[in-house]
Simulated scan of single mutants.
Amino acid sequence: MATSREWEFAGTRGAVTARIWADGEPRYVAVLVHGYGEHLGRYGHVADVLVRHGAVVCGPDHAGHGRSAGERVLVEDFEDVVADLRTVVDAARGDHPGLPVVMIGHSMGGLIATRYAQLHGGALAALVLSGPVLGRWHVVEELLPLGTMPDEPIDTSTLSRDPAVGRAYTGDPLIWHGPFKKPTVRALDAALRRVDEHGSLGPLPTFYVHGEADELVRPRDTRVGIEAIRGDDLTERLYPGARHEVFNETNRDEVLSDVTAFIDRVLAAAPRSGT
């Protein structure tokens, strides 16, 4: 198993904790971007696969998430979260000059990663989006008109067909189990609109994966966003029966194998260090 270490930096809204997994001499950098309410510690098994594949893996706990500072799950502007992510990427590129950078964003992290790619795509060799919040999100549409946010816990069966995933989620003290914050809902709405308006990712190789049975972030809604951002090199794979967290699904090995195969294809065809 790859060894990991944490480091901290001054983010846009307070201290941000980042994590790095490494073992041996890497051939690329993989940056993980986690979703709403969770933290990067849930991605250790993904990091292990990527490290064995030749990556040094890193990523932050977003402000208000996990071990980072800030009021829990409060995000007033996702441009701030993108700026924190850029700090992590810049640090990784400084530590590993010349290595290509692949960004992997899940759920809300897919929205953040897409916005990063729109602003700083020249720093990336490839982008992977897992069940990304793009286009429209029914959760935001339902919550936006409400004055009070309902305190209804997530149905953990929507995460994965593996019941152990739901049990671990429920028992994780670093995961937020309370209601949305209204400013975060507004910020999500603004970020979705901003990404749609910015448009195409151009030549950036992009791999979009999604569970066909995802009821948290519905594929038909994400499709709206994918069509808005799709560039010249989009690969996609929808997994029948899979729910929201495809990296934690019963076919997780298949999903991660598809991701590493995509990375191999990109690095073989157009290795680059970014600008």
Score class of each variant (00 low, 15 high):
residue 131 G to W: 04
residue 131 G to T: 00
residue 132 P to S: 08
residue 132 P to F: 09
residue 134 L to W: 02
residue 137 W to F: 14
residue 137 W to Q: 08
residue 137 W to S: 15
residue 137 W to H: 12
residue 138 H to S: 13
residue 139 V to M: 08
residue 140 V to H: 14
residue 141 E to T: 06
residue 144 L to M: 04
residue 145 P to A: 13
residue 145 P to L: 09
residue 146 L to C: 13
residue 147 G to L: 14
residue 147 G to S: 05
residue 148 T to Y: 12
residue 148 T to Q: 13
residue 148 T to I: 04
residue 150 P to S: 05
residue 152 E to R: 15
residue 152 E to F: 11
residue 153 P to W: 11
residue 153 P to D: 02
residue 154 I to Q: 06
residue 154 I to W: 12
residue 154 I to D: 05
residue 155 D to F: 05
residue 155 D to W: 09
residue 155 D to R: 14
residue 156 T to R: 09
residue 160 S to Q: 07
residue 161 R to D: 02
residue 162 D to E: 11
residue 163 P to H: 09
residue 163 P to M: 11
residue 163 P to S: 11
residue 164 A to Q: 14
residue 164 A to D: 02
residue 165 V to K: 13
residue 165 V to T: 01
residue 166 G to L: 13
residue 167 R to T: 06
residue 168 A to W: 10
residue 169 Y to N: 10
residue 170 T to V: 08
residue 171 G to I: 06
residue 172 D to K: 14
residue 172 D to R: 07
residue 173 P to Q: 08
residue 174 L to V: 08
residue 174 L to P: 06
residue 175 I to P: 05
residue 176 W to F: 08
residue 177 H to Y: 06
residue 179 P to F: 05
residue 180 F to R: 00
residue 180 F to S: 12
residue 181 K to E: 00
residue 182 K to G: 13
residue 182 K to T: 04
residue 182 K to R: 12
residue 185 V to I: 08
residue 185 V to M: 10
residue 186 R to F: 05
residue 186 R to M: 11
residue 187 A to I: 09
residue 188 L to W: 07
residue 190 A to T: 00
residue 190 A to K: 03
residue 191 A to D: 10
residue 191 A to W: 07
residue 193 R to F: 06
residue 193 R to E: 00
residue 194 R to C: 08
residue 194 R to F: 07
residue 194 R to V: 01
residue 194 R to S: 00
residue 195 V to T: 11
residue 195 V to W: 03
residue 195 V to N: 07
residue 195 V to A: 10
residue 196 D to H: 02
residue 196 D to V: 00
residue 196 D to M: 07
residue 197 E to T: 03
residue 197 E to S: 12
residue 198 H to D: 06
residue 198 H to L: 09
residue 199 G to L: 10
residue 199 G to C: 07
residue 200 S to H: 11
residue 200 S to M: 12
residue 201 L to R: 09
residue 203 P to V: 01
residue 203 P to W: 05
residue 203 P to L: 02
residue 204 L to A: 12
residue 206 T to H: 14
residue 207 F to Q: 08
residue 207 F to D: 05
residue 207 F to Y: 15
residue 209 V to M: 15
residue 211 G to E: 01
residue 212 E to T: 04
residue 212 E to P: 11
residue 212 E to L: 11
residue 213 A to R: 03
residue 214 D to E: 05
residue 215 E to T: 12
residue 216 L to A: 04
residue 217 V to W: 01
residue 217 V to S: 11
residue 217 V to P: 02
residue 219 P to K: 12
residue 221 D to G: 13
residue 222 T to N: 07
residue 222 T to Y: 00
residue 222 T to G: 15
residue 223 R to P: 02
residue 223 R to E: 03
residue 223 R to V: 04
residue 224 V to D: 09
residue 225 G to C: 06
residue 225 G to E: 03
residue 226 I to N: 10
residue 226 I to L: 13
residue 226 I to D: 01
residue 227 E to V: 08
residue 227 E to C: 10
residue 227 E to G: 03
residue 228 A to C: 13
residue 228 A to V: 01
residue 231 G to P: 02
residue 232 D to Q: 03
residue 233 D to I: 02
residue 233 D to N: 09
residue 234 L to I: 06
residue 234 L to K: 09
residue 235 T to V: 07
residue 236 E to L: 14
